[in-house]
Design a protein around this nucleic acid. Sequence first.
DNA 1: GTCTATACCTTGATAGAC
DNA 2: GTCTATCAAGGTATAGAC
Lengths: 194, 194
Amino acid sequence: MTASSKRTKKQAILETALGLFVSQGFHGTSTATIAREAGVATGTLFHHFPSKEQLLEQLFLGVKQEFADAIQASASSRGSLKQDAEQLWFAALNWAMANPLKQAFFQLYSMSPNLEQSVRDQAMHGILGFIAELIRQGQTSGELAEYPIELMQDNCHGQYLAATRYFVDHPERWQQAHERSASFALFWNAMAVR
Amino acid sequence: MTASSKRTKKQAILETALGLFVSQGFHGTSTATIAREAGVATGTLFHHFPSKEQLLEQLFLGVKQEFADAIQASASSRGSLKQDAEQLWFAALNWAMANPLKQAFFQLYSMSPNLEQSVRDQAMHGILGFIAELIRQGQTSGELAEYPIELMQDNCHGQYLAATRYFVDHPERWQQAHERSASFALFWNAMAVR
DNA sequence: GTCTATACCTTGATAGAC
DNA sequence: GTCTATCAAGGTATAGAC
């Protein structure tokens, strides 16, 4: 088997923990359960991760990185501001649709007390930071309303979370172009100057 | 002491559990800790609530009812659709600002696997159900865009959650009229026909 | 209704053979 | 790196006196 097709025990533990943390919560999932479901021994789990908390943290940072890579890969081409925003919007939604478990995990644990606040804040700023720059550009060019930037940033985030919930819960609607464009219209019109 | 000023042990347990469930999560909070912090014995806790799960459920349904009462009390006066929406928006935000802990609890546990899905869904439908009716009115009168209703409903919810997070995290901004009106503008413009 | 005491189980983590 | 075996601590819930 090739290097890429061979799933290591460590990866198996991470993938299993992802599913269990989403469906049962952090404290609701025991390390023994993770190990059993991943097909490894508890000793193996604690060989790869010094503690249950560290396992959660590595999982969170890994998923965050995957998401950041996915949307920044498609954020390079330059068009109008609205076109750029649209591309970003659908890149983010595409990732969520392709990785519903990771999306659910990220959403649940972005506000969870099980992760240190510094870890959570850092993740949020890294991902949402460049959104603020786009908003500023739009305000300067007169395309976007001059509301407080942080409010607009939080609003973007909230609308993204709502859209992902909607489409993940109803995958067939994601196939329909008018549903997809409606989701972006709601997002854009909230901030756009009429 | 009067009937209203005398806090029963049961109420003390509920209030203590509210704070602990928010700061430490459901499984992260032990019944022993709740009892100790509430100043009662564990036996007393299990006298009032048959199980830890039932305690969470009663807490959730109680908070849901408080919220529903608060916004429906101020949703009666009839003006234009936009005026009605504005009144509703600020009634909901006012409640969140006055009850930040309950808001945080409601937000965290509305999507938590610790509560049965039927309980969560029922709560959401009861609260957001009449929003759908307002949206339909706006679409008929031509004031609101004709996007799929459920998408718009979820979008409203997401924008509300974003706004509450923003103002709860920055209470001083809630005192400024232009911040408040900006939050409603974002909400309304997302759906409004230009 | 409220308490103390406790039964019984599961937990996170470790030790040491392989 | 992986396993089995095990520990000490903490978990939910109950029993029974007051």
